[in-house]
Design a protein around this nucleic acid. Structure first.
Lengths: 217, 217
DNA sequence: GTTGCGATGCTTGTATGCAAGAAAGACGGT
DNA sequence: ACCGTCTTTCTTGCATACAAGCATCGCAAC
């Protein structure tokens, strides 16, 4: 694989994991020195990330880590809800034993994390769970889109870990989602996933409102 | 705007419009000479298109216009159906007079094209119609995703123009879609759009099967 | 005649150099 | 003292140069 591709993954990971703060500037020279390459592969990596929306470039003003306006973020959560709902709908119709087992396994992982009251662990298991749902849709393209959007929203999801009592509720929703999919209830699975994701958007709204209160006061 | 951005749009347009055939090779040197720039902005444009999926790059072997496997194409049509259904669902819930008028206007354009039995014109009007539906979802992100996918599938949709009697049927479906949205019937609008788009995937399957028959025989 | 190996040429991938545009600071005017 | 303008400097964007890898073609051996 080329340097540019490696850099793309690396920078993307740092954005998704939160190492690179939202809105922070991505200086080509700094990155070039840091990774020990010239500006060319750095530029190519940043341009690809810009094409996927993870970074924003302003002409002659370089690249920053995307920090969408709140209204656009809510739109992204809503879109995520619709796409996940679609995955669930298709999964309920097409569930094969292999995927059913994977769903149960992912669910078990979530249960363990909740039992241990370990948000970080639940965060990881939650990722696995949703990934399994995407795959269960048996639509490679939709799964890819869902995963891409999931990753893009990861920095914001991470903020929600601290919201109290979210873990048990999230787990309960996961249980309901799996139940609907296994039962072949496509409409139910879609609705369960839609509301599961949408509530995250709502929580996010609460969070933003909470964070803004001090500065507004 | 920079050269790279202009080139990106230009090449994208040529792919979407069919000027650049699916699967054809995109030689950096040729493109550089053709557009009168160096290879650098060409590379940057191609990499961005690769990030959005319109072209594929193989390491050390350059870029070609994406020509997905049939199974992936069907997945893309299915994903398109789900995303458009989501747009319709939201549009039905949120319809504002402005969007209602835009829908009626787009519908009128489609009617005119069908009355004139002009497939090329209908193709253009159909594009407008779907774009209006996306916007009516009042979700900028979802609309953007829908439009992007619509453009990406455009080369295949174009192939379907010749399928007999598709125009009147497509128009009838458009009428039903608008009726559902205007009535605030979100589930109905979603289902109408889903099947409207899915049938294109089915038609595409027929087409592929038809094209393959000679070589298989 | 066919097949395997090697050389050559062409293409991509990266580095470096250079010019143009934007941001920031200094200087002068009010 | 403050504001506007000019200049300087830093960054991006493009061009060119260079290196590395793959493909193709030719040649030789079987």
């Amino acid at each position: 694989m080329s340097h540019a591709q490696r850099l793309r993954q690396r920078i993307e990971d740092e954005i998704v994991s939160g190492e690179l703060a939202l809105g922070s500037r991505l200086d080509e020279n700094q990155l070039a020195v840091r990774f020990g390459v010239s500006r060319t592969p750095i530029r190519e990596a940043l341009l690809q990330l810009a094409a996927t929306g993870l970074v924003q470039t302003k002409p002659r003003r370089g690249a920053i880590v995307s920090a969408p306006e709140p209204y656009l973020l809510l739109a992204m959560f809503e879109a995520m809800a619709e796409i996940e709902a679609a995955c669930g709908r298709l999964a309920a119709r097409r569930l094969v034993p292999e995927d059913a087992e994977a769903l149960q396994a992912a669910l078990a992982g979530c249960r363990t994390a909740v039992a241990q009251e370990d948000p970080e662990s639940y965060y990881a298991e939650n990722y696995v769970f949703h990934t399994v749902v995407y795959r269960a849709s048996r639509n490679a393209f939709l799964a890819e889109q869902a995963l891409s959007l999931h990753r893009r929203l990861a920095p914001y999801r991470r903020l929600q870990l601290r919201v109290r009592q979210r873990l048990p509720q999230s787990l309960a929703e996961h249980e309901a989602i799996v139940a609907a999919i296994v039962a072949g209830d496509d409409a139910g699975a879609a609705e369960a996933l839609r509301s599961h994701v949408l509530v995250q958007g709502d929580r996010f709204t609460d969070l933003v409102a909470g964070l803004r209160a001090p500065s507004a006061a």
